[in-house]
């Protein structure tokens, strides 16, 4: 698959729900429409909930890639201001 170039990255592997999503949302809020955020998150609840919550807010989920170390990288494109 094509490499996605992120404009900003955030690591939320040290956080638990809902702070994983909250932190991702705060960082995303600072970006401009169309910019891409890469979120590093843990397997399990975060990998399930964070993409879903960001999607519910209207953002576009580009991909969720397994990193091979029990973490994932979520690429999300900011939609709207």
């Amino acid at each position: 698959m094509a490499e996605i170039k992120a404009d900003e990255t955030v690591d939320v592997t040290h956080l638990v729900c809902p702070n994983t999503f909250v932190k991702a949302k705060v960082v995303l809020d600072e970006l401009d429409e169309g910019q891409i955020l890469a979120v590093r998150l843990n397997d399990g609840e975060p990998a399930q909930n964070v993409p879903r919550s960001l999607k519910e807010e209207g953002h576009q989920i580009l991909s969720l890639d397994e990193n091979g170390d029990g973490t994932y990288t979520l690429y999300v494109k900011k939609v709207g201001d």
Partner: peptide, 24 residues
Amino acid sequence: MALTDEQIERYSRHILLKEVGSKG
């Protein structure tokens, strides 16, 4: 002004709201 990690946690239930968010 960026929110600190402590602020993000303290106000997380506000930030979760679409109508508030970190801007609000």
